[in-house]
Design a protein around this nucleic acid. Structure first.
Lengths: 342, 342
DNA sequence: CACTAAAATTGACGCGCGTAAAAAAAGAAT
DNA sequence: ATTCTTTTTTTACGCGCGTCAATTTTAGTG
């Protein structure tokens, strides 16, 4: 109906607003007078002009881009929390750019590198943790406001938001002890995730509090095929009857899912019923934990609270225009989700 | 050690290469003489300069960006295939930009819109299918080279790459008939995915070929909680004994996973064994299908073949600089993955 | 060695927008 | 109406790079 608008100059001419004012408007609509804003918005409906992203960001030191980096998108936990963070960014008027490191710490660095060249206003990073390149990340954080979530790296970034593993593990250990035999702990020998170390520690403390001996069993294996490791290694342990009690607390749900499949194969009935000889519990409330056989008793991390808080922590820094004095760590409590497996 | 290089001008001065030549190099390293290329690369190692992304793309009509849009990243199928496509793009020297539509067809349009403003060289789209805004996508494809994968939309995009549902369903139906009672077909009533319609059709044809009556059962329910729907609706059907045979072929693995959990709850033994009263098969070889109880017999889609072929189909178009005359449809065969459930 | 085609250099302009400074206009307050 | 303050307009420059035309250099050939 109307001719195509090629640039801001033309839009200024046709809308009767000067170009610098339009520039201010597109940078922050609140920065112009209300009457002007309404005039622009009306013209915008009529002519459908959108400023050129590349020209916009070229001369601006800070863009409206927010980088999001997760270690492994094929893990439903990260795709869920990635989704939540992405939506939080959109709601706040930022452009989220999601990257997965596909299980490779090297790619984590590469992702941060390629983000850097997009001059992001800030970055939300769920790092590998121990496997991460700590120095690289700290270097990165010097240039770009950085908020960590899920996995902590001490001293890196302006803030960390995650789950309180001591509270959550304490909760499930207490429940397991109260409702049956005290739990053994099943985990990977060389976990890449720092939460795993916290959870082991939390298990030890909780068992001491409950007055029971602790039993830790570690599976060999690397990589991100947790179900496979849980199934093969956990299955071997079940077959060899290495667990001194009938209850196993797995460091995360994906290991537990593997162990449940091994138990099923071996004809071991899992659950609280009288004919059951094994109880299994997990941690994370993985999206599939509701559909395991039996359904998995676990700890639900507050996905959306973590995502929202991480995002708003970053936005607070961005809007205050300066880095906070102290590094902030926010831990959310996990909730016990009682299902059939324990 | 050396001073920071601010722009291509400075890098030209310090490396002894003229700026236009550098510009050519960064656009396509093969476009300069080998001796020159080596000189540049040596200087690059020494001085660590990277051209400004925004300034680079501003004056170029075609960037090196490739958009990737999937309907729902929290579905492991899409995160897996998204990952494969992403890596294929990186290998080919493009910058992948991954977007998830989070289950919302509106967001699919929004994603394409925001991609458009990034002037992508091309876009790889796994559309919703029936729920997609067909006209919008066709409009989009007029501006940007577009390759569809996983789900087809007739007449949209330059090419489609997916799985041959007729072959794959034929294969599993044939197997099920040969090894036991002929299968019933379980699916959603209003599937958003066009593959579902193809699979139903394929089931009908395959059953006719095998000389058995077809039985289709459709679950109510919307959205992407397939496991939930499979569990609740499928469970109800199991309890009501509506299936005339002891074998159920599910339209996809996620429905099958839900049905398996329902069967477990009801104490129905699933599998081929003599004490089993139900067989369940799926389609897709979902990453979790190996760990269901019992493990799920299914059809494996060739994830990486689909991803690689989709990517290289797009690159072929990009390098030939022109749209292909005919729309190409490439279907890969599924493979039967025999596990314990059927 | 001259000759030619290919590649690199020089010099220059423009892309679309950010942004600064000065002038003008619009509101708000007296 | 006058003054003061806030906002907008005018004017102009620059960002970093793409790209073009004219020129020079290089590499390859007989």
């Amino acid at each position: 109906m109307t001719q195509k608008i090629r640039n801001m100059e033309e839009f200024a001419a046709i809308s009767g607003i000067s170009r610098p004012t339009l520039s201010k408007f597109f940078n922050d609509p609140e920065s112009v007078r209300r009457s002007t804003r309404e005039r622009i918005e009306k013209a915008l409906e009529k002519y459908d002009y959108r400023p050129n992203v590349f020209a916009m960001n070229q001369n601006r030191s800070k863009t409206k881009n927010v980088g999001i980096v997760v270690p492994y998108l094929a893990d439903p936990f990260f795709s869920e929390i990635g989704r939540a963070v992405e939506l939080a960014c959109l709601d706040a008027g930022y452009s989220p750019i999601l990257h997965s490191s596909h299980g490779s710490p090297q790619l984590e660095n590469d992702n941060l590198d390629s983000l850097r060249s997009l001059k992001p206003a800030g970055v939300l990073l769920a790092p590998f943790g121990r496997a991460s390149d700590r120095k690289f990340i700290q270097e990165f954080a010097r240039e770009v406001p950085l908020v960590l979530f899920d996995a902590n790296i001490e001293g890196a970034g302006e803030a960390f938001i995650g789950t309180d593993n001591f509270q959550s593990i304490g909760l499930v250990v207490e429940y397991l002890c109260r409702s049956g035999e005290p739990p053994c702990f099943f985990e990977m020998k060389t976990p890449s995730n720092p939460n795993a170390n916290k959870r082991r520690q939390a298990y030890l403390e909780a068992m001491a509090r409950q007055g029971h001996p602790a039993h830790i069993f570690q599976a060999e294996g690397d990589g991100w095929d947790f179900e496979e490791i849980g199934s093969v290694e956990g299955g071997r342990m079940l077959a060899d009857r290495v667990f001194p009690t009938n209850t196993v607390l797995c460091s995360n749900d994906r290991l537990a899912i593997g162990m449940l499949s091994a138990a099923y194969r071996q004809g071991i009935r899992v659950g609280r019923g009288p004919d059951c000889t094994l109880r299994v519990a997990g941690h994370d409330d993985h999206p599939f934990s509701r559909f395991t056989c039996p359904s998995l008793t676990t700890i639900a991390q507050d996905y959306s609270a973590i995502a929202d808080h991480a995002a708003s922590a970053l936005f607070a820094i961005l809007e205050s225009e300066r880095r906070p004095a102290a590094r902030e760590e926010t831990l959310f409590e996990g909730k016990l989700v009682m299902r059939e497996s324990a």
